[in-house]
Design a protein around this nucleic acid. Structure first.
Length: 152
DNA sequence: CGAATTTGACCGGCGC
DNA sequence: GCGCCGGTCAAATTCG
């Protein structure tokens, strides 16, 4: 376990099967508000076209722990925070990020270890479809890496 | 002015 | 069936 140069193995070509990606495009979130008469700002009654279940297959997950003081590690991609929730058994909240890349629906989860606030757990979900355009030398020492495979 | 962030609400699954 | 937990969206706000 020597630190060569803070090189992180991304799930690009390591995974055995690459057919995890959808071959078409079904999963499209067309959740758009086209009803202005709705007094309720939340979810329309006429909607309900959320294809979600059916394919319980989840994208491969890649998690690794790093020692950092900031939750936001610059890996060369731009992330947009879309949520923050506190998990039980953890004094620190978990942050949810999404890749701002067009067509790239990669999600990232950042969570601090309970007890060790110096350790940050970053979990990537999905794979990037675009290459990095920025040097990701900001990576700190990777403590542990783990590949989480979908239930099936 | 646009994009990113913040925060609260709601949904969906699971456990009891 | 209800409550809990985790995850996502969406409107408002702030930053650039």
């Amino acid at each position: 376990m020597e630190d060569r140069s803070c090189q992180v193995l991304f799930p690009s070509s390591s995974c055995s099967s690459v057919d995890h990606r959808l071959s078409g495009d079904q999963t499209q979130c067309a959740t758009q508000i086209n009803n202005t008469s709705s007094a309720l700002p939340h979810h329309n009654t006429t909607e309900g076209k959320k294809h979600k279940s059916k394919n319980k297959e989840r994208e491969a997950r890649f998690a690794f722990q790093t020692r950092s003081q900031v939750d936001i590690l610059d890996d060369g991609y731009r992330w947009r925070k879309y949520g923050q929730k506190a998990v039980t058994n953890n004094p620190f909240p978990r942050s949810y990020y999404k890749c701002t890349e067009k067509g790239c629906r990669v999600k990232k989860q950042v969570q601090r270890l309970s007890g060790d606030e110096g350790v940050v757990v970053t979990t990537y979900q999905g794979v990037h479809t675009h290459p990095v355009d920025k040097p990701s030398d900001n990576f700190h020492h990777i403590l542990t890496q783990m590949h989480i495979f979908p239930p099936f």
